[in-house]
Design a protein around this nucleic acid. Sequence first.
DNA 1: CTTTGGGCCTGGACGC
DNA 2: TGCGTCCAGGCCCAAA
Length: 264
Amino acid sequence: MEGQSFKRVHLRRKNLRIPFPKGFQERLEGQQIVHVSRRAKYILIETHKDVLIWHLGMSGQVRIYNVGDQVAATGKHDHVQFDLNSGATIVYTDPRRFGLMDLTQAATVHEHRLLKDLGPEPLGNEFSGPILAAALKGRRTSIKQAIMDAHVVAGVGNIYASESLFMAGISPKRSATTVQGGRAEKLAMAIKKVLQAAIEAGGSTLKDHRTTDGGLGYFQFRFAVYDRAGQACANCDCNISATKGIQRLEQGGRSTYYCPRKQR
DNA sequence: CTTTGGGCCTGGACGC
DNA sequence: TGCGTCCAGGCCCAAA
């Protein structure tokens, strides 16, 4: 993609989760793509003038057609199409429209409202036990809700929050501010391991998940606790204990799963 | 300052 | 079978 230019941008509606910015097509058409990167779950496509900030939400899919490929008929949820000067075509489909696209000047991309207050990348060196501990200090909310806050660490969603806490042996109900020292170290490492494993498995298959090439998820990250209420967790007899296995609870309107035996 | 709750949206699961 | 209802997800933002 880098080195190619936007030849034509087709917009099939005026908004996704937020409105497309004014002049969306005009600002991109004719511009050369100089760099493609990522911050949190935002894809950043940089041209000489603007950066396209692109989030896939949870149901967003990208289809890429190379020169000579047959481009499928426009589907009901195909909202944006980019025709590149190389002849390649990129189609963005997003049934639930939780995704978004915005444009911002390349020189000030990190001052963009969606990016400026993001915490560290969990897989980067800048994320560690001590850094996590510092971010949690003084927080009176639960540790589960704290690690889902993008200001603490970027891009840990509901599923991986439960999974990471399980791996770290920390109860999701624990007060965030008490996760310090060894606990913070363990949790930071667990977040890294869980995300890395999920990436290597090709993501998690939830209902309509697709792989990056559009196929049905063929392989999936195996959840240790998520969506497994009542079952025993690995190598544990928690399901025959008084609490009856993995528990589900609600925190901030989101489901949390955990093993009360192994997580404190 | 932190925390909470509402809102965006569709399709799949479920009950009648 | 067909319908209505509920729920799930990421994550911003207004309100408390």
